[in-house]
Simulated scan of single mutants.
Amino acid sequence: MKVWLLAALFWVSGLAASLPSAAQERVSLAFYNVENLYDTVPSAFYDDRDYTPGGRMGWGGERYGAKLRNLARVIDAMAPDVIGLAEVESERAVRELVMTLRTDYNYIHRTTGDYRGMDVALLYKGDKFIPERVRQVPSASGREFLYVRGELLGERVDLVICHLPSQFNVYGRRVASLARLYRFVDSLHRADPRARMVVAGDFNANPTDRAMRRAFRTGRRVADGSVFLFGPLYPMFRRGYGSYVYRDRWNLYDNFFLDNGFLSGDGWRYDRAGIFVREWMLSPGDAGRRGYPLRTFSSGAYTGGFSDHLPVFVELTR
């Protein structure tokens, strides 16, 4: 099936939703790899020369402003209550994105040791989520995990935002990062089994990849009592949908993992998950790229798009 047709199919699928009852509370959590959201200021700590006004990408105020407006258009259309971001260069870039949004968000940003200067951040609506604890967690790579514990409308939720090493890095680094991520989440669960865990990020691997299955032990309970996580986007991936295209294949690199506390009991419960996409986020394009996520640069040429990834989301109700 051609990529553009597949994209059109899950664009329609992404619009389908059940109507919530009047008495039901609903919150949405999202994750978005925004692809190289650099500011225009040269860094003294890493080489970002390409993304400066005099650099190879011609990254001046006009292109930077267009990137902010494009990302804001996506986030405003999605309207999540909480959203994790990957590939932001600096607090300045996060702050200026927040200022471009129509909705009022607070933000949390931490500088990581990534060699390209790529960080993760969290945006949240202050009337929905109240952070109580923030820390960075070593990841076996330069991209530390962002851990935020807080109250989601009065109920404790533990969020972990991550961006794992890419397919172009050493495979062992990604495996080590996955293992460390799982051990951290498992330690939180063992310290307080009542805590609700949400892990979101760009894992740079499909959920069916061996490293992902081994690290998260998804799809089965384990005898040692460690936390059981489920991937609510698995059904979409099995049907051929994804968040990122590589060599004409949709991959689900961007993902959510929730603990089984969201499947039963009182409080927040898992309702649905999806890949957020609108037709204007996709390339109308030529050269075989029609239906791909419309990115900012394609083969070195400026295309003025959004990101090479599509955002993913989950909705909870109670």
Rank of each mutant, 00 (worst) to 15 (best):
V3Y: 03
V12Q: 10
S13A: 14
S13D: 07
L15N: 06
S18Q: 13
A23K: 14
A30S: 11
F31Y: 12
V34Q: 03
V41M: 06
S43W: 07
A44E: 15
F45S: 09
F45T: 09
F45E: 15
Y46I: 02
Y46T: 02
G55W: 10
M57I: 07
G61T: 12
R63N: 05
A66P: 06
A66W: 04
R69F: 07
L71K: 06
R73Y: 08
R73D: 10
D76Y: 10
I83T: 03
L85I: 01
A86Y: 04
L97P: 02
L97Y: 01
V98Q: 04
T100G: 02
L101N: 06
Y105N: 07
N106K: 08
Y107R: 01
Y115Q: 15
V120N: 02
A121F: 00
K125D: 02
G126I: 04
F129A: 06
V134R: 03
P138S: 04
S139G: 08
R143Q: 04
R143L: 04
F145Y: 12
Y147P: 01
R149N: 08
G150F: 01
L152C: 08
G154A: 13
R156M: 12
V160D: 00
H163F: 15
H163A: 11
H163E: 08
S166C: 09
S166K: 10
F168K: 10
G172C: 13
R173M: 13
V175Y: 03
A176L: 05
L181A: 06
L181C: 09
R183K: 06
R183F: 11
R194H: 05
R194D: 11
V198D: 00
V198A: 01
V199S: 03
G201R: 02
A205E: 06
A205M: 04
P207C: 12
R210W: 13
A211K: 01
R217N: 14
R220D: 04
R221E: 12
A223F: 08
L229S: 03
G231D: 14
P232W: 01
L233R: 00
P235E: 11
M236K: 10
F237T: 02
R238N: 08
G240N: 02
Y241N: 04
Y241S: 07
V245Y: 13
V245I: 15
Y246K: 15
R249D: 15
R249A: 15
N251T: 04
N255W: 14
F257M: 10
F262Y: 12
L263F: 06
G265Y: 10
G267K: 14
Y270I: 13
A273S: 14
G274Y: 03
F276D: 01
S283T: 13
A287Y: 10
R295N: 09
S299T: 14
A301L: 14
Y302S: 12
G305V: 09
S307Q: 05
F313D: 07
E315H: 13
R318K: 14
